[in-house]
Design a protein around this nucleic acid. Structure first.
Length: 124
DNA sequence: ATTCTGACTTGGG
DNA sequence: CCCCAAGCCAGAA
């Protein structure tokens, strides 16, 4: 019988992913680069992590962060420049407070001016 | 295995 | 400004 040929090299499935770390890890690493007093959107983070159009995954990765993580999750906001509502009521207030403490301003509608506080990593 | 549900974004009405 | 459909994909049920 010749059925034993079960290809164990799934590694080949990963396309040209020069980075073999998990999607979450890549996302976290990008978030870690956001400087103090700046914010990035979920979509932007996903894109920089090599996961285009996967904004939702960025949000999911934030949600999955272990408590007390070194990742500055508070610097990730939605495309409208506002702190996204989450399941844990009140969590948004914590995020807003952390950002304000870094010098990020919110307008009357609770939005951040991305033109001013948005993170623009240098192209090179 | 299949179905649902999200810390989302973008494009159209 | 609001509402809706698609695209994405990890976990939970």
């Amino acid at each position: 019988m010749s059925v034993a040929a079960r290809p164990r090299q799934r590694v080949a499935n990963r396309k040209a992913r020069s980075d073999r770390s998990s999607p979450y890890e890549r996302i976290w690493r990008v978030v870690a680069r956001i400087p103090r007093g700046r914010v990035a959107t979920y979509g932007q983070v996903a894109e920089l992590a090599g996961l285009p159009r996967s904004a939702r995954q960025a949000g999911y990765a934030m949600h999955a962060l272990p408590h007390g993580s070194w990742v500055p999750w508070q610097r990730v906001v939605n495309a409208r420049g506002e702190v996204s509502a989450r399941s844990d009521p009140g969590g948004e207030l914590v995020q807003r407070a952390l950002l304000e403490r870094e010098g990020v301003a919110f307008d009357a509608r609770g939005r951040i001016d991305l033109a001013r506080y948005g993170w623009r990593p240098k192209p090179s």
